[in-house]
Nucleic acid binder design. Structure first.
Length: 109
DNA sequence: CCGTTGACCCTTC
DNA sequence: AGAAGGGCCAACG
């Protein structure tokens, strides 16, 4: 069954474990198109509730725009509560908290 | 089928 | 570190 891009995105996001984060580009890569990172954002914008979309951020660790999640502070609070480390600059420590998916996990797609 | 749209990413200043 | 401009690609009408 061929899934649409957003469908694969939803699946990937739901696989992100607590305490880890992923970037839009990362999800785009896992979904099959490294350059379709915008599609990831568009997909999350229409994503159903229950998805840990607050664990998805920019390539440099900066959080997404204020209109999402009800504010950056809210998103940062959620991530901190899950054990995600933050740098003095207020950005997420990607070097330590970036999600590294296993091959067995990707087979489920 | 073509144009518009968008929770991005990269380069450069 | 933050801001501006250009490019990419799939979904939708």
């Amino acid at each position: 069954m061929e899934q649409t891009f957003p469908q694969r995105i939803y699946k990937l996001v739901s696989l992100i474990p607590k305490g880890k984060v992923a970037t839009y580009g990362q999800l785009a890569l896992l979904a099959g198109n490294p350059r379709a990172s915008r599609i990831v954002g568009a997909a999350l914008a229409k994503a159903p509730s229950g998805l840990p979309c607050h664990r998805v951020l920019y390539r440099d660790g900066s959080l997404c725009c204020d209109r999402a999640f009800g504010g950056k502070e809210v998103q940062r609070g959620l991530l901190k509560r899950e054990g995600v480390l933050f740098l003095p600059t207020g950005q997420v420590d990607l070097l330590h908290c970036l999600w590294k998916p296993d091959n067995s996990l990707l087979e489920l797609l």
